[in-house]
Structure formats: structure tokens, C-alpha cells
């Protein structure tokens, strides 16, 4: 019970303020590097996805599609 109380106090202390963004916009240069862009060649990725869609029973949530990263 005592351990639980300590854990709750720590959690409340941690939640005293909302977490703040810890990666500033000027620190996202590496994320914008072309090697990190899954949608760099959309026609190439699109044909691979098309072959998978035609040949496989699974569909949706394709991993080759770009999801955006706030780093363009």
C-alpha cells in the first residue's frame, strides 16, 4: 500500500504540467533527410504496393505509404 502511495505521488508530480514538445523544429534536420522519407519515390513504392495488393489476401494500412512526420 505504501509503495502504491509513493507511486501515485510520483505520478501526480509528473502530471503537474502537460509534457512539452522535446524536439524543436530546428532540431528536425535529420528527419527531413531523403533517407528518412518513405514516400520519396511514390511511383516506385506504388507499384510495389500494387503487386502486393494483387498477390496477397491482406489489404489496408500499407507500410509503404507516407504518413507525414512534421519534417518536410
Amino acid at each position: 500500500m505504501r509503495r502504491l502511495s509513493i507511486l501515485l505521488v510520483l505520478l501526480l508530480a509528473g502530471c503537474s504540467g502537460w509534457p512539452r514538445p522535446w524536439v524543436a523544429p530546428y532540431e528536425r534536420e535529420l528527419l527531413a533527410d531523403p533517407v528518412m522519407d518513405p514516400a520519396r519515390d511514390p511511383l516506385v513504392a506504388g507499384f510495389r504496393s500494387h503487386v502486393e495488393e494483387v498477390r496477397e489476401g491482406a489489404q489496408g494500412a500499407g507500410m509503404t505509404e507516407g504518413g507525414g512526420c512534421g519534417c518536410n
Binding site: 524536439v23 532540431e27 528536425r28 534536420e29 535529420l30 528527419l31 528518412m36 512526420c69 512534421g70 519534417c71
Partner: peptide, 9 residues
Amino acid sequence: AQVLSPSTL
């Protein structure tokens, strides 16, 4: 999509 660190997405 979530930026986790300056080099991790």
C-alpha cells in the same frame, strides 16, 4: 506519426 527524437520517427 510521432517524432520521438531528432533522429527517430
